[in-house]
Write a protein that binds this DNA or RNA. Structure first.
Ligand code: MN
Ligand code: MN
Ligand code: MN
Ligand code: MN
Lengths: 226, 226
DNA sequence: AAATAAATTTAGATAAGTCTAAAAATAAGA
DNA sequence: TCTTATTTTTAGACTTATCTAAATTTATTT
């Protein structure tokens, strides 16, 4: 009846849940201890300890030596943290003039602040954003993520036209590269040529010609017209 | 030369510093172990442990059995935390429609977020407020607090007129009492009568007559005309 | 299938922060 | 001043989160 959900987990527990959530999406099948350790820059033994704890709290399904999956409760909790992280990122960019390459570290801290009203009001102030500054979807309060069909620039063919809607690599270096060359979310891009040999492309953006390497093209999401 | 001040202290260390700072102001002389323990709802033995740690980090002057005082470094650090706390409170009230009785707990969490840019930008967004929603002064980046002459309503005499500028008691119950009776910062109050026996007063606010008890009068700060 | 390699877990330590109970120091009262 | 009360510190224990090194399990190769 009275689902007092925000039973409060430690920052560390929340970070593990978030990491497992992301790994589950990208690695399809169950998430391994080592995968988590790598991602979190910690040791496998630490991960094992935490998995036991999360398992006891019904947040993950854990079988020794077999890796983990999130339970429904675990997914909801992870989504709530991701929601907070991304809403804060929008706030930092929209209201505090942060650049999109400098919001992540602060959001990593802010995502653990425990106040439902705070997030609700932020969400309202920002006019209920559906995507964060990197184009990543912001789950709603039920933990559902908005969908948007998007494709990597590297997967488009000559003649295609699309609008930038997200980045795969969110590193500061990559984002600054995009800034430097005038590539930003919302901008239209047309694929003019593709070089088969090194997969580099010639594209048109703001009526300028720009050459981008495979590395760039495979980290930029576009939404194509049609 | 390059004072990288924000060397990062733990939330717990920051909370102790803040508490000692406030106690030093109110208790004048050195702050005792028990005073800190009472204030923080913890045990004296825990306080002793922390005082040793803070002392090693040059944040407090600590002599066994003699209590503590903050060092300059300790004062600066405490002021920085109080600055963050109060700026966040202003933000919550001004931008997120929080009532002044519901901001403190969230600010207790937010004050530990470590990002100079975040606070600078918030400060700017809020137009560099000097006082928080309870009328408490917000120190500047150097740790200096703005002064404002204010007096408790209980110390004024019949005929005096003043403007509400702060509260001494910031409990939710007290603040809600004020809300209920239309008393808010910025409102003008005139003392009409004082009852010697129980120190209650008859005051005029918004052209309404209101009777307030000694308890109320001794927790409301006014700035008198002249 | 046996041997080897890789992944995972366990055992035992460490650090931060807290607690209880006992000891020591200081303050107050007779 | 001597005795008692209060305050403060110390000693030892516990929790959370982490680590290293060793043991165990699972996967891969001959
Ligand atoms: Mn991020
Ligand atoms: Mn993001
Ligand atoms: Mn407060
Ligand atoms: Mn306040």
């Amino acid at each position: 009846m009275f689902e007092k959900f925000q039973t409060m987990f430690s920052d560390s527990e929340e970070n593990y849940l978030k990491t497992i959530f992301h790994l589950e999406r990208s690695l399809k099948d169950g998430v391994s201890t080592n995968a988590i350790a790598d991602q979190m820059q910690t040791k496998a033994s630490s991960v094992t300890d935490m998995l036991k704890k999360l398992s006891e709290k019904q947040l993950v399904n854990y079988i020794k030596y077999q890796g983990v999956t999130l339970t429904e409760k675990g997914k909801k909790t992870a989504a709530a943290i991701i929601r907070k992280h991304r809403i804060w990122e929008v706030f930092l960019v929209e209201k505090l003039d942060f650049n999109w390459d400098e919001v992540h570290d602060v959001a990593e801290q802010l995502e653990h602040i425990d106040s439902e009203k705070l997030i609700d009001q932020l969400d309202k102030l920002l006019n209920y954003p559906k995507f964060d500054p990197h184009g990543d979807p912001i789950p709603n309060k039920d933990g559902n993520f908005p969908l948007r069909d998007k494709q990597l620039l590297s997967n488009l063919k000559v003649g295609d036209i699309g609008v930038c809607v997200g980045v795969k690599d969110t590193s500061s270096d990559f984002l600054k590269y995009l800034d430097k060359h005038g590539i930003a979310l919302g901008k239209q891009i047309e694929i003019l040529e593709k070089e088969e040999f090194d997969k580099s492309q010639k594209i048109k953006i703001d009526n300028q010609i720009l050459h981008v390497s495979q590395q760039i093209a495979s980290n930029l999401f576009l939404k194509t017209k049609h």
